[in-house]
């Protein structure tokens, strides 16, 4: 069951990610990204991170991506045009990211030799109670700092998106 679920949702995530990069229209890209996020939230569940899985659904796919889709629809942004300026990134991008991937995989397999096998239900410390407890005791200061960050972001967004900007 674990293998089946992991394989299926990992494939969904990878196909969605490739589709995000390949699709020409922003709406298609956005929906591909939503599918990646939903697949990742299932993987979080398999890893026992129940709260994070739900937060992934609520915050990422339920709010952030809705905002993206809203902006794309609002701007009525069409398909991306072929760019005339082919930069250095076009030539070096693919080989370099492939190299990055190979290097990362190598480091992972070498350094994580004592890795556990993932079994659904083996780790139960990711429920809302445990996450909340850790968040409001050990990580209270970072939590408060992020709340200030969000306040600043709200103010910034309001100032930037005001109509009469000159």
């Amino acid at each position: 069951m674990d293998v089946l679920l992991f394989t299926f949702f990992a494939l969904v995530a990878i196909v969605g990610a490739v589709s995000l990069v390949v699709q020409k229209h922003p709406i298609s890209s956005a929906l591909s990204l939503v599918s990646v996020m939903v697949a990742l939230s299932v993987l979080f569940l398999l890893l026992g991170a129940e709260f994070i899985a739900a937060a992934q659904l609520v915050v990422y796919s339920g709010a952030i991506m809705v905002l993206f889709v809203f902006v794309i629809m609002l701007l009525n942004a069409g398909a991306e045009r072929e760019s005339r300026k082919a930069g250095l990134a076009q030539f070096l991008g693919l080989p370099l990211t492939a190299a990055l991937l190979v290097f990362a995989s190598y480091v992972i397999t070498q350094s994580m030799s004592n890795a556990k096998a993932v079994k659904f239900g083996a780790f139960t410390g990711g429920g809302p109670r445990e996450v909340g407890w850790t968040l409001f005791t050990q990580y209270l200061l970072p939590f408060e700092v992020t709340s200030i960050l969000i306040l600043v972001a709200i103010a910034g967004a309001v100032v930037l998106a005001r109509k009469e900007i000159d």
């Binding site: 674990d2 990055l100 990362a104």
Partner: peptide, 18 residues
Amino acid sequence: ATVPLNAYLILSAILFAI
């Protein structure tokens, strides 16, 4: 049957690279 932990990490690396 279980999934090796490395599979998750490599999936993460693949997504990051994409």
